[in-house]
Computed example of a mutant assay.
Amino acid sequence: MDYKDTGLIFAGNIYMAPIVDGLATDFAGPINVSRLEMTPPQPESVDRTSFQRDTYGQVLDSVNLPGEAPRMAMDFDSLPSGLLADALAGTSEAYTSSVQSVTGEAVTLAEGVWQKLPYPNVDVSTITVTLESDGTTVLTRGTDYEVESASGLIRALSANGAAAVTIDFDTVETSGQKIRGATEISKKRQIIMDGKNLVTGKNAVVTIFSASFSATQALDLMAREFITGTLEGTMTTPEGKGSPYEILMQE
Rank of each mutant, 00 (worst) to 15 (best):
P18F: 01
V99S: 09
T140M: 10
R155V: 01
V63R: 12
V122Y: 04
F213M: 15
S175Q: 13
V46W: 06
A159M: 00
S186L: 13
F213G: 07
A162S: 07
L84D: 03
E68W: 02
N121Y: 14
K188M: 06
I227H: 03
Y56W: 09
D47S: 14
E93F: 00
F169N: 04
T216A: 10
N32E: 11
G112M: 03
A28Y: 12
R53L: 14
A150V: 12
V99P: 02
T126P: 04
E184S: 15
M235F: 05
M72Q: 08
A89R: 08
D170G: 03
G90S: 08
T6Q: 07
S175F: 08
T39K: 14
V59Q: 06
L79G: 11
L117Q: 07
A204I: 10
Y3M: 06
Y95P: 09
V33L: 03
L198P: 02
P70H: 02
S151V: 10
T207Q: 13
S186A: 13
F213W: 15
Q217A: 15
I167H: 06
G242C: 03
K187V: 09
N160E: 11
V147E: 05
T128Q: 09
P244K: 05
I192P: 03
T234C: 05
T126R: 06
R53N: 11
P70W: 04
P244H: 05
E37L: 11
Y95C: 13
A204K: 07
S243D: 05
M38W: 03
A163G: 02
M193V: 15
L36V: 02
E132N: 04
K4W: 00
V124N: 07
V20N: 06
P30G: 10
A163T: 01
T234E: 15
V206Y: 07
T143Q: 13
G29E: 07
P66W: 01
A163D: 01
V124P: 01
D170C: 04
S62I: 00
L23Y: 07
G82Q: 12
N203T: 11
Q190P: 01
Q42P: 00
V102Q: 02
T140L: 12
S98V: 13
R224S: 13
A11P: 00
L139F: 09
Y56A: 15
D21G: 12
E68P: 00
D77A: 05
T130A: 03
V172Q: 11
G22F: 11
D26W: 03
T216K: 05
V33R: 04
P30W: 06
P18D: 15
M193K: 09
L65C: 02
L8Q: 11
K202L: 10
V129T: 05
D5P: 00
I167G: 07
M74V: 09
T143W: 04
N197G: 11
I14N: 05
K116Y: 08
Q217H: 12
S175H: 07
I9R: 12
F51E: 14
K187Q: 15
P18E: 12
M249A: 15
S210F: 00
V172D: 11
S97M: 12
V59S: 11
G229W: 01
T91E: 14
T39Y: 06
V124T: 14
L219G: 04
D77L: 00
L157N: 02
S158D: 03
K241P: 06
R189P: 01
S243A: 14
L131Y: 04
T25D: 11
R48V: 13
